[in-house]
Design a protein around this nucleic acid. Structure first.
Lengths: 215, 215, 215, 215
DNA sequence: AATGAATGAGTTTTCATTCAT
DNA sequence: CATGAATGAAAACTCATTCAT
C-alpha cells in the first residue's frame, strides 16, 4: 500500500467504507488539487488520473466542490482533534511539567501529522480563503474552541511562573506562527532544499523560549 | 483618488504611463483575483467590472496570465526593494545601533507596505505555489539575494554580541515567520476582529528578542 | 388502493400480471411524464420516486421509450375501444333513437374516462407529435377505423333526418373539437378554476345541436 | 427571403435589430423545437443547423430556456394583439352588423396568422404546460383580458338578439374550440392530407351558428 | 486605441443503459 | 428478480482569445 493510500486511509477509514474506485478518485483529486489548485483542476483530469469514467466521480460526489470538501473537511478535523479531546489540558499538564516540553511535544506531534499529510495541508491552506464553508469551519473550531484551550494552558504555565506574563493571545499566535512558519518554509516554499529538521525545530523552540538576545 | 488608485499608482507609475482604462482593468483584476482567486476569475468578469470591452484587456495584456504577472511582479519587486538597495547593510548598520531597533524598523516598514497592499499580497501568496514564473522570481530574489544580505546582517549583530550565536538561517526564518504570521492572522484570517496593532507588534518583537521564559 | 393504482389496474390488469415494483415504476413514470414531459424526465428520477433501483426499470422495459409506449399505448387502445367493438354501430343505433342522445352518452362516457385518466391523457396528447410509433398507431386507428364508423353513424342519422346534410367529416371533426376543446380547457389549461361540469357539457351539446343563432 | 425569414421578421423586427447570426439561430431553433420538442432538442444541434458556434447561441441567449421564451413570448403577444387593441369592440361592432360575420372575419384572420406561424404555434402549444412563465403569461392575458372582451362582445350580440341567451363563457369556449380544433386537426395532426380549407371553415361556422339539427 | 461578436475547445454535470453480484 | 456501481457519450454552458470594424 502506497504512502498516499495510507494517508487516505488515515483520513477516511474510520468514518466510511471506501471502494477501490473511490480511493483512486480521492488520491487523484488530492494530487491534482495540491499541484495545480482546486479551480485549475478539471474533473476530466481527475478521472483520467484515477482511471475511472468521469461520471463515476459524480456518482460519489455530487459536485466538484463536494469532492473538495470531502477531502479537506476530515483533514481539518484530524488536525485539530488532539486539541479537542475533552480533558486535553489536564492530561497535558500532568504529563509535561515544563512548558517547553509541552511545546516541544505538541509541535513535534502536529508537525509530523502535517508532514504526513502535506498535500492535504497545502490544499487546505490554499482553499480556506475562497471556500466560505471551510473558513467558517476553521474559525468556528480554531477561534472558538482551540484558542480557548490554549489560553488556559498558557495561563496555567504563567501561574506556575514558567512563562512571562503577557496577553495570552499574543503568546498563542507566536506559537502558531513558529510552527506554521517552519512548515510552510520547509514543505511548501523550499521542499527541494536539504533540511536539518531536528535542528531547525530545536532552534525554533529555543528562540521562542529564550529569544534572540543573549542573557 | 481612491485608495485602490493610490495603490496602483504606487506600484506602476514609476515604470509606465497608464491610461485610464488600463488603470480600471488593473483595479478590477486585483479586486477579483483577491476575492475569488486567479483561476476562478474570468476575463469577462474583469472587463465588466472595469467597464471596458473584453477585447480591451487583451490589447494591453497578451494573456490572462500576463495580466496576473503584471500585477504581482511589481509588488514583489517593491516588497523586496528595500533589501536590495546596494549598500543596504552598511546604511542600516549605521542607522540602527541595536538589533532590536533594526528589527522594529524593518517590521514596521514592511508591515505598513503590505497593509497598504493587502489585496495584492493576498494574490501573491495564493499564486506563488502555482505560477512557476513567480516561484522562480521569488526564490531567485529571496533565497539567493535577500537571504544572503540578512545572513550578513545577522552575523554583524552576532559579532557585536547583540544576538545569540546560532545558525543565521534559523534566525532569519524566525524573523520572517513572526512578521508574516502576524500579517496573515491579522489581515487574511481574521480581518474582521478588532486588533491592537501597536501592542501585538510590540509583543511579537519582545518574544522574538527575549523569549517566553522569564529571566 | 389509491386512485393512481386503480387507474393503472384499469389499464393493465387485463393484459398482464404486474408485480408490485412494476406498478410503482408505472405510477412514478406517469406522474413525472405528466408533470415535466417525457424528454425532461430522467429514469433515475423515476427510479427514486418508485423506490426501486435504476436497473430495475430496465429489467422490465428495454428502454425509456419502451416505458413510455407501454404507458401510452394501452391508454389509446382503451380510449378508442368502445368505437372498435365489432357491432358498435348496430348496438348504438338501437340504443339511442335520437342523435342527440347518442352524442350525449358518448361524450359523457369518454369524458369520464379521460377525467379518470387525465395524467395519461396529458402524456398522450403531448407525445403524439413526437413519437412516430404513437402517431402511426393513432392515425391508423382514428383515421382509418374510427372515423369510418363515425361516418356511418353520421350518415345513418342523416338518413333518419336527425342531422343536417353535410360532409360527414366536418360533422365528426366538430364533435371531436367540442369534446376535446372542453376537456383541454377544463383539465389542462385551467384545472384550478371552479367548473360547472354538468352545465358546461350540456351547453356544449346544445350549441353543437342547435347553434348559437336563435330560431 | 425565405418564408421562415418573413415569419421571423414579422415576429421580431419591430422590437429589436437582429444580426444575421441571430436570425439563423432563431430559425434553426424554431425548426428543431417544432420538430422534436424543446426538451429533446440540443443546443449543439441548433448551432450546427444554424451554422454558428455553440458559444454564439449563449452569447445572445443566456440559457436554452431563454431562447425558447424569446421565441414564444412574442408569438403569444402577436397572436393576442388584435384582441387587445383599445377600442377593439367598438370597431368590430360597427364593422360587423351580424355576429356571424364577426366570427367569420375573426376566425379567418387568426387562422391565417397561425397558418403563417404554424411551427411557432406548435411550440407554444407544446410548451405551455411545462413552462410556468408561459402559462402565467397565457392565463394572465387570456383569462383576464381577452376573455373579458369576448364576454362583452357576446353580450352585445346577445342584446341585439343575434345570439341565444347563454352563459357567455360557454359561448366563448365553443368559439375557441371550433377554431383551435380545426387548426390542430388541419396542421398538427393531419397536415399531409388534402384539405378544402374554405369549405371546412364555412361548415364549422355554420354548425357553430345553426347546429347539427335540421330546423 | 477600443470594441464586442464570434469562436471552439473545454468545463461541470446528467443520463440512459449495462452488468457483475 | 433486483441491485446499484460504473460507464461514456452527450448535455448545457463558460471562457480565453481573435479579429473585423
Amino acid at each position: 500500500m502506497s504512502e498516499q493510500d495510507q494517508m487516505i486511509n488515515e483520513l477516511f477509514n474510520n468514518h466510511e467504507e471506501l471502494t477501490e474506485k473511490q480511493r483512486r478518485i480521492l488520491a487523484a483529486a488530492i494530487e491534482s488539487f495540491a499541484e495545480k489548485g482546486y479551480a485549475a483542476t478539471s474533473t476530466s483530469e481527475i478521472a483520467k488520473k484515477a482511471g475511472v469514467a468521469e461520471g463515476t466521480i459524480f456518482r460519489h460526489y455530487k459536485t466538484k466542490k463536494d469532492l473538495l470538501l470531502c477531502i479537506v473537511a476530515p483533514l481539518m478535523a484530524k488536525l485539530l482533534a488532539p486539541f479537542v479531546i475533552k480533558d486535553f489540558d489536564k492530561v497535558l499538564n500532568q504529563e509535561y511539567e515544563r512548558f517547553e516540553d509541552f511545546v516541544k511535544a505538541m509541535i513535534e506531534n502536529r508537525a509530523q501529522f502535517l508532514k504526513n499529510n502535506m498535500q492535504l495541508f497545502k490544499i487546505l491552506v490554499q482553499e480556506i480563503p475562497f471556500q466560505p464553508e471551510l473558513k467558517e469551519q476553521f474559525t468556528e473550531h480554531i477561534a472558538k474552541k482551540i484558542f480557548e484551550r490554549f489560553r488556559k494552558i498558557v495561563e496555567h504555565y504563567q501561574s506556575k511562573g514558567q512563562i512571562i506574563i503577557m496577553e495570552p493571545y499574543s503568546v498563542v499566535r507566536m506559537l502558531a506562527s513558529t510552527i506554521f512558519g517552519y512548515l510552510i518554509a520547509r514543505y511548501l516554499l523550499m521542499p527541494e532544499d536539504e533540511w536539518d529538521d531536528e535542528g531547525e525545530m530545536e532552534r525554533s523552540i529555543f528562540i521562542l523560549m529564550h529569544g534572540l538576545s543573549p542573557k
